[in-house]
């Protein structure tokens, strides 16, 4: 069983329409869980957003319900560095939580929850497969692997992102993308020892005011390419 999650119904629309959906189930959180198959693989698809609290709760519930061997997180995110532009694809190697600070002085280096590791990490083997498939069938998008920062606030200005990077990550250039759900999904996968692959499209470059109107549409536009990459991995390998 493979579980596909996204921040909204828009993010998972491509998979819902391309897979053989056999049943739909309304979860108590109001989310719809689609069950079906891709090739010979059983799948579940669910929108778990819009924020980290919900995504952690719903993903944890789905993992207990479906027992997937991997969770695949799709959707869109914002760029945190100049080289990642709208329409590029991003594969997350690590997940950091933003806005969590138990240090008392506001200078916590990673902003992570006490008792948990400073960051959650992805399966490098699966990420490498996804990267290779992205070059193969990714529709010519630029692809980058890096660290995902995930918080509870939608930032629009570049200065805010730069401030976070300088204050908590010493200006690290590996922290490349930001969204509001991946941290929760990574937390749920970490506590349940389930593998996670995140493949998202960069829909917004902070500070680029023109993109404030079209970033959701731009995110949706890349979904067929993301779907093609993931289906390529799934259909060409017995198991990941």
């Amino acid at each position: 069983m493979i579980l596909f999650v996204g921040e909204s119904e828009d993010s998972i629309l491509y998979f819902v329409s391309r897979c053989e959906i056999s049943s739909q189930e309304r979860l108590s959180e109001g989310r719809i869980l689609y069950k079906g198959t891709i090739g010979s693989e059983q799948i579940g698809i669910c929108a778990v957003g819009p924020n980290n609290l919900y995504s952690a709760m719903v993903t944890d519930r789905l993992i207990h319900l479906l027992d997937p061997y991997i969770v695949i997180n799709v959707g869109y995110c914002a760029s945190m560095k100049d080289s990642l532009r709208q329409g590029d694809l991003f594969i997350a190697d690590r997940y950091y939580l933003s806005g969590v600070d138990f240090s008392g002085d506001g200078e916590n280096q990673y902003g992570q929850i006490p008792g948990l590791p400073p960051f959650f990490y992805a399966s490098t083997e699966v990420n490498a497969k996804a990267e290779a498939a992205s070059y193969e069938v990714g529709g010519g998008h630029y692809i980058e692997r890096g660290f995902m920062l995930s918080g509870e606030k939608e930032y629009m200005d570049k200065e805010e992102f730069d401030g976070i990077l300088l204050r908590h990550f010493a200006g690290s250039t590996k922290v490349s993308a930001y969204d509001t759900v991946s941290g929760g999904i990574a937390l749920a996968c970490h506590v349940n020892s389930t593998a996670l692959l995140t493949l998202k499209v960069i829909a917004y470059e902070p500070g680029n005011d023109e993109q404030r109107l079209n970033y959701r549409r731009k995110g949706l536009e890349a979904m067929p390419d993301i779907g093609r990459i993931l289906l390529n991995i799934l259909l060409n390998s017995e198991k990941m």
Partner: peptide, 8 residues
């Protein structure tokens, strides 16, 4: 397929 084998 370490991810799958690991889950098994």
């Amino acid at each position: 397929n370490t991810v799958f084998i690991s889950s098994i």
